[in-house]
Simulated scan of single mutants.
Amino acid sequence: MIAAASKNNALGKDNDLLWHLPDDFKRFKKLTTGHKIIMGRKTFESFPKPLPNRTHIIITRDKEYTVSFEECIVVHSIEAALKLVQNDEISYIIGGGEIYRQGEKFATKIELTRVHKAFEADTFFPEIDLNDWELIEEEYHPRDEKHQYDFTYLTYVRR
């Protein structure tokens, strides 16, 4: 799983991000390019167009939902999405909140950008249970002229 969440686990509000962190976007692009990314319909619809050089697997309960981009596959459950990536060395669950909740039990790694501020939101990242996850890498990024908030890249692996 890959996400950026505030200190109160906020992810977004009204299907939009709560911050603009260019270095985090660069990291997300670097990690996910060339891989399959699994997301909910609302997360997909928050993009102006599909992200380049990635296969998008979109989960929706709507059996009539279609997408006219060849780099997109529509499925109707987290299990169906995971079946499409079972032979891939790396794939990413990229959100939103409900997809993270459903996918967490299947994940082996979490790449989390922890934004050091609490936000009002309507979508949240699940609480990380440190009995299940071990923090193996941590890199602090201070607030600067391009980043309104300080944040830390955290890498967790399943225990």
Rank of each mutant, 00 (worst) to 15 (best):
P48T: 10
A80D: 15
V85M: 09
F47G: 11
N131W: 07
D14Y: 12
Y140I: 11
K109R: 15
E89K: 14
W133H: 06
Y156S: 01
I73D: 07
F28K: 13
S6E: 04
E71N: 15
H141I: 14
S6K: 00
V157T: 09
L84G: 10
Q86S: 15
Q86Y: 12
W133Y: 05
Q102C: 03
M1P: 13
L31T: 04
N131V: 05
R61H: 13
I136P: 04
L31N: 08
E138M: 13
G95F: 00
E98C: 00
P48G: 05
G97P: 06
R41Q: 09
E104V: 11
S68V: 10
F125L: 03
G97K: 02
E89I: 10
L51H: 03
R41L: 02
R61D: 08
I136K: 07
E120Y: 01
I94G: 10
I38V: 09
Y156Q: 02
A107I: 09
D150H: 13
Q148D: 15
T32M: 04
E138D: 07
K13H: 10
S68I: 09
K83G: 13
L21M: 11
L11A: 00
T66N: 12
W133L: 01
G12I: 07
H56P: 05
A5F: 13
M1Y: 14
D132P: 06
D132I: 10
P126N: 06
F25S: 14
T43W: 00
P22W: 12
M39N: 05
N15S: 08
A10M: 05
I90V: 15
P48M: 03
Q102L: 13
I37Y: 04
K63E: 14
A118V: 07
D14I: 08
Y149P: 07
L112M: 12
H35W: 00
K26V: 14
Q86N: 15
S91Q: 11
I136G: 08
E145W: 08
K117P: 00
T55H: 12
K30R: 09
K7A: 13
T66Q: 14
T155E: 04
S77P: 03
G97I: 05
R61K: 15
E111P: 04
G95Y: 03
K29G: 01
G95K: 06
T113S: 06
E70Q: 03
C72M: 03
N87T: 15
D24E: 14
T55P: 02
